[in-house]
Design a protein around this nucleic acid. Sequence first.
RNA 1: GCCCGGGUGGUGAAACCGGUAAACACGCACGACUUAAAAUCGUGUGCCGUAAGGCUUGUGGGUUCGAGUCCCACCCCGGGCACCA
Length: 806
Amino acid sequence: MKYDSGRIEKKWQKKWSEEKIYEISDKGEKFYHLVMFPYPSGDLHIGHWYNFAPSDVYARKKKMEGYKVLSPIGFDAFGLPAENAAIKRGIHPETWTYENIERMREQIVSMGPMYDWSKEVITCDSNYYKWTQWIFLELLKAGLAYRKKTPANFCPSCNTVLANEQVVEGRCERCDSEVVQKDIEQWLFNIRKYAEELLFSLKDVDWPEKTKLMQENWIGKSEGVEVEFTVEGKPLKVFTTRPDTLFGATYLVVSPEHPFLNDIKKTKVKNLDELEKYVMQARKKSERERTSEEKDKTGVKLEGVFAVNPLSGEEIPVFVGDYVLLHYGTGAIMAVPAHDKRDYSFAKKYGLPVKRVIRSESGLPYEGEGELVSSGKFTGINSDKAREEIIKHLKEKAKKKVNYRIRDWLVSRQRYWGAPIPIVYCKHCFQKEGKEGIDYTVFEGEEHAIVPVEEKDLPVALPYVEDFTPSKKGKSPLSRSDEFLITICPRCGKEARRETDTLDTFVCSSWYYLRYTDPHNDKAFADKKKIKEWLPVDIYIGGAEHTVLHLLYSRFITKVLRDAGHLSFSEPFLKLRHQGMILGPNGQKMSKSKGNVVDPDKEVKKHGADAVRMYLCFMGPYDQGGSWNPRGILGVKRFLERVWKMKENIEEEENEDLEKKLHQTIKKVTEDIDNLRFNTAISAMMTFLNKVQYLKKEQIKTLLLLLAPFAPHLTEEIWEDLGLKGSIHNEKWPTYNLSKTKEEKTTLIVQVSGKVRDKIEINAGTPEAKIKKLAKESEKVKKWIAGKKIKKVIIIKNKLVNIVIE
RNA sequence: GCCCGGGUGGUGAAACCGGUAAACACGCACGACUUAAAAUCGUGUGCCGUAAGGCUUGUGGGUUCGAGUCCCACCCCGGGCACCA
């Protein structure tokens, strides 16, 4: 019979689901295998396949090896794109989302993965976001969630604020619009408090070095010193990592928003008008504009104002410049133009003195370290030592300080399709309690007490509203629903207002891996025993684009929940691996406008899911991705056809050589899957089959077992055809006998002065003297060494001999 | 600018610890089967050369008996960060 992938795949998908063969067993060591859950964007695309199919191979092998494997799937269902798409199509985000989920579920099933659907999680289900809200309240309790009026990144197209991590080169991550700064009352999570731990516990996880490095850079730790200058009799602190260059400080620069300006402006500054104008201009500019003028720094000198260098006693001028950022360090710097290229370019522009204080051969600016010059009593000392001595000398005017680049996580979104923030604002409580002893905020222009919704009243349900379009003013659509907005204060029982912003979807996705262990629990986000049974995640597979978003947030939330006593581990994902990106056949990123999109449904129809799965595995290194070659899939398809035909080529004849090859193949496939080297695992099986005319039934069985994770449908069908009992996917992974993988004969490479001149078949373990003799006796070699003096002979056992001649 | 990856046949790629460069596959060529085509199977396939042989892993240099692999400099491609003091 012909190999009919369509018929076979439907048959087994149905059967597997009916017989629940992927239900998690209670035997064996636990293995939590996780893939990044998809966003229900419409149809499953080839990128999803590339995430799910090869990782499913990995999970299946683990299961066959006797682990009890949790391999769940779900949907990251809240978020801006659902709304944007719904608005475009004129349907409700909820309808759009659930319709997509239904379709994508079918498409996922068509891949033949071993997901246990009873564990499915959908973040926009109220039984899920109830716990997202609960986690918010946990953060609030721990003092890690706070409301603040702060300049925030606002996307004028999405009409909402965004987290720092969601702004890419000054543009909205989603829609690419230029982000503007806007002062709005916002909810933030204090991720900075965990900056140090987020940094140092990276050493405990097995992640790609690049990913760790990106997180490190994002957190951006820098150890330095706050040095106190005196400006017109008042202290002004600057942050520097190079106190050893203090003698080279020729001016100070403060950021335009620095509060110190308010004090000094009116009394001392002579060019007040110029200053005011500059500050106004700087405020108007977006961060993007300010940072894009990198090459051309601007500033205004505070005429009549001088700062005193605490170390040298020198009087130096003070500038306002927008290249100094308020939110980093102290918002003020000492400028050392000789040893900092930014200060150097500023100094050149404004004709300020440049004073070298570190000796070096190279020109200025010189940013390296070295021996101090022109630095008073510190002259002649080396940078590292000088730093310590200067700090000591300055006493309380210099304090060591660690700064982090990372900013707190802004979680409010002025959009409809998200989990409501479980907070109530109460005017009455504020009037009664006043500003002391109570958290209060400005809401709708008036002061209110901040009252958390009580746990028993969760979830705060997202109301079904007809008008969910975002407002241009950056106000949540929920504020238009009186039914939602007006509520009862949990504290005083009088009328109050609900928070109308929703939570960033990254809050939802920062804990879903916990929920998978116990998705239907309505007493807790997950049962403690279940969490202990499964977590942390043993391997997490997904794209690299989430490095500073989802992966960082998840680590943070894990640590918060640990400190609140809910978890007993510190890192959620012990091992992380990224899949690469699949490009269109033309080598470019797939996009509808370029017409190079590969539709997996069509490929499945044409070649079968098993072939598509395998081709994705075979294309190249998993973390590298590559362009889809429409002909490339034919290679694996031909291989599957040949496997299909093998069941007619059974012969029970001993073949020791073949048995050896088989054991080598088992070893190779086993090790390669472990290392996610799916491409070479497949080529090993191909190599094996290429050498084979007939197989014994036992050998076919072994081959099928090796192939089962890759081609679950085909192997199951042949398994049945061979009259074997049960599902192949409940069978044990084949083991190899190490002694059977060893060859008795090997090829000895004979080199003369490093060039290959002959190849000789020898027995493994041939002694060196014999090898030497064989090599010299070779006719081909004789030709090259005749009449030459042999300098030396190098022998690598079982492999190579190199006769070095003059 | 800084920090990471990566440059190997016509193409995707392979190569453990420095030891046969190009496994496996696509494509191509030829052959078998066929009235023919497709499919399938077989053979060949880095480059130059009839051959002997020579050359070949981005470029140039170095270490070594031996380098795709290690070291130095440079070029190109991809990704991240980008006034973070």
